[in-house]
Design a protein around this nucleic acid. Structure first.
Lengths: 234, 234
DNA sequence: GCCAGCCAAGTGGTCCGACCACTACAGGTC
DNA sequence: GACCTGTAGTGGTCGGACCACTTGGCTGGC
């Protein structure tokens, strides 16, 4: 058995696996700086070009971070870093898959809201109220969307599971929401949305997890059903 | 306002966004072949090296697929393609985040199993039974793990939501399961695991969604609690 | 002695040109 | 007609050059 790996796939792919293994194996800690591109290339016996492709790939995955002029670093490897790419899925999905994404969001969001009802702090609840008020005080769709996102983001954060919050963040990415919400709100769903948000807020104030779960599920489910119906005729 | 983008970030990053926009905008359809690396580089006014990095990045994200000697193609853009990177998250997570991942899995898996109880076909149910039997017939941990994965994969597939199944697949990636399962099974949890699998199977046969949900939640929850307790002393 | 500013070494970012490995297809051969 | 073969075109790899930026030490003035 030779020390050299027996050429599986492209050299770049091998380099990617190699660096991933270094991190998984603890040889590289979060936040730590890596050797230079040039040194890494020599270590793995490949060209700098190929090494750069590997680094770029791990960068978009949120595993590494390249700082121009400074060096390459391992990210904190927190949920937010690694799940940032989840937004890409939402942005590139169309048709039936959008419904599936909303179904996943309904399941996670309802659970997260239920957990939040039991755990949310007074400070955080005040933050939620702030966005709820701001959302109802304007007619600018852009602003409404922003506060809507923040409203759910605060709640997801209060659930105490960063991974879940990061996934929900990806499932609610700005472009994704904008695409679906546009049509939904055009049908005069503003009033309904406000009622649903108010119901979620009431459940949080009452610290009633089951009511919160039901309100959140209904909220997302409304959009889900609307989208499902909209795709049916096609 | 000039036609040329005013240099946001690296040229490679710009190229990535450009290609993503082409796909999101419908100018590139799933399965379609892209121009050659050389042509694309000219189109965006960047070097082939930078274009290659962009392509590589989109390749690891499951958006593009490069076939040596043939060309670059847009993938089918199905849930499995885009969520393959989800496994990386599971593989690089440690400590408290592993518990969070299991919590997400518990929520999704219990729902998926409940849906499966209502929707699973006879053929698929037979497949589930096959893996259940095979799992109980051997003592080889590797083989048990493989059938365990297949058991849950079949069930997730029967739930009728490919996106959910793809996420669960990522949350159960081989290396992730191997790391957690190892310690769990070493404590003589084989018998308990078998009982839990049997309970899930019974619920599927009885087409009882609520029983299935409870059995699946308990199954994952057991591991979750074990891991939680294991991390506490540290 | 201290601090602001400068400067040089080192790093990632970009580009170029060459060659290799592989695929696909046209054309010839049997 | 089926099979083989050559070839053009593609992605894969390499090496080197230069640019843009960060960093930290050094210099100079206060």
């Amino acid at each position: 058995m030779d020390e050299e790996a027996p050429q599986k796939g492209t050299v770049t792919q091998r380099a990617i696996e190699e660096i991933k293994a270094m991190i998984a194996g603890g040889r590289l800690e979060p936040g730590q700086r890596l050797p230079t591109e040039r040194d890494l290339a020599v270590q793995l016996g490949i060209s700098r070009s190929s090494m750069r492709e590997a680094i770029r790939a791990l960068t978009v995955l949120g595993v590494l971070e390249a700082r121009h002029g400074s060096g390459i670093y391992v990210t904190a490897l927190e949920a937010g870093d690694l799940l940032e790419t989840f937004g890409v899925v939402a942005d590139l999905s169309r048709g039936p898959r959008l419904v599936e994404l909303l179904e996943v969001r309904r399941i996670l969001e309802s659970t997260a809201t239920a957990l939040a009802a039991a755990r949310i702090t007074a400070d955080r609840l005040a933050e939620v109220e702030k966005h709820l008020t701001a959302m109802n005080a304007t007619d600018d769709p852009e602003e409404i969307l922003a506060h809507d996102l923040a409203f759910h983001r605060e709640i997801a954060g209060a659930a105490g599971n960063e991974t879940m919050a990061a996934i929900l963040e990806g499932l609610s990415s700005r472009t994704f929401r904008a695409r679906v919400w546009r049509g939904y709100q055009e049908e005069g769903a503003f009033a309904r949305t406000r009622r649903e948000h108010a119901a979620i807020h009431r459940a949080l104030v009452a610290r009633d997890p089951e009511a919160a779960r039901a309100a959140a599920a209904a909220h997302v489910g409304e959009v889900e059903e609307w989208l499902r119906a909209r795709l049916r005729p096609d």
